[in-house]
Simulated scan of single mutants.
Amino acid sequence: MVTTQECLRYLQTGAVTKGDADISGKGVILAFLISAYVSFTAVLVAYVTGMLEDELLTTVDRRIMRIKSRKDKHPRIHETIQHIVLLLSDQQIVTGIAIMAAGFVGLRGGQMSVYHYQIVLYLAWLSSSVHLSALTLLRPFLNKHQGLRAWRLLGMIVLFFMLIVGLVPTVSYDWGTIYSPEADTSLPDAIQPTGWGIPAICFWGKTYGDGLNDDAPIGYLILIFSYVWKMGDLFAA
């Protein structure tokens, strides 16, 4: 566990960012990105090809985008796309919760740097955003299967609160910005002490008198608005 004295020292000198393949490894990043892009592509294809319920189309979709529902003409294709999106969106919830749980464990133990904790937040937010985008397509299906809707709502609530709590360290103005004035610029970037190498736990509920990050309220507002909007959409007729 990192002590307060160590945190104060790191704030003055920075720290070297150490590798963590479990968080920033190429395999981990690719797994998240591929899943997210496939899920987003499936939703996009469903809209462009009209493989969705007519009730999901707005006036703009019909008159400007010229999209018509073709699910009745191609029920098997519609069902296949729907199940693919359902499966991938479920995966997004699970992976988002899993990466946030790993982040909290590393944060509590003091081993996770600002850099790697920021990656955790990026990946979890990516999973959250992709899942929310898929909900629009799944609304009619979930309205018919209330048990699945209840479980999905529970997963959304868990991930939402994990993100809300997880953003706490990032509200500090010093988050990721500390750079030692005595740094040796001749050293390679990989071994250069910076604010990104400081243990993320050093910023848990602490601003060190430098105030809050100006972007912090915006991040919270976007997160809250998107979840309230999509959760309400789940119960729309």
Results as ranks from 00 to 15, higher is better:
residue 69 S to K: 08
residue 69 S to T: 02
residue 70 R to I: 08
residue 70 R to L: 15
residue 71 K to P: 13
residue 72 D to A: 14
residue 73 K to A: 10
residue 76 R to F: 10
residue 78 H to I: 10
residue 79 E to C: 12
residue 81 I to L: 15
residue 81 I to A: 10
residue 84 I to V: 13
residue 84 I to E: 04
residue 86 L to I: 08
residue 88 L to V: 03
residue 90 D to V: 07
residue 91 Q to Y: 15
residue 91 Q to F: 15
residue 91 Q to P: 02
residue 94 V to F: 15
residue 95 T to N: 11
residue 101 A to K: 13
residue 104 F to D: 07
residue 105 V to S: 11
residue 111 Q to C: 10
residue 113 S to D: 01
residue 117 Y to W: 11
residue 117 Y to S: 01
residue 118 Q to N: 06
residue 119 I to Q: 10
residue 120 V to G: 04
residue 121 L to G: 07
residue 124 A to V: 05
residue 127 S to Q: 08
residue 127 S to D: 08
residue 131 H to T: 06
residue 133 S to M: 09
residue 133 S to T: 10
residue 133 S to W: 09
residue 134 A to P: 10
residue 137 L to T: 02
residue 140 P to N: 08
residue 141 F to E: 13
residue 146 Q to E: 10
residue 146 Q to R: 09
residue 147 G to A: 02
residue 147 G to S: 10
residue 148 L to C: 03
residue 149 R to F: 07
residue 152 R to C: 02
residue 153 L to I: 06
residue 154 L to E: 06
residue 154 L to Q: 07
residue 156 M to T: 04
residue 158 V to I: 14
residue 161 F to W: 01
residue 161 F to H: 05
residue 162 M to P: 04
residue 163 L to Q: 01
residue 167 L to M: 14
residue 167 L to K: 08
residue 173 Y to G: 00
residue 175 W to T: 00
residue 176 G to L: 04
residue 177 T to K: 12
residue 179 Y to I: 08
residue 179 Y to Q: 11
residue 180 S to P: 02
residue 181 P to A: 03
residue 182 E to K: 06
residue 187 L to Y: 04
residue 188 P to Y: 04
residue 195 G to R: 02
residue 202 C to E: 06
residue 203 F to K: 07
residue 203 F to A: 00
residue 204 W to A: 05
residue 207 T to C: 06
residue 207 T to R: 09
residue 209 G to M: 04
residue 209 G to T: 01
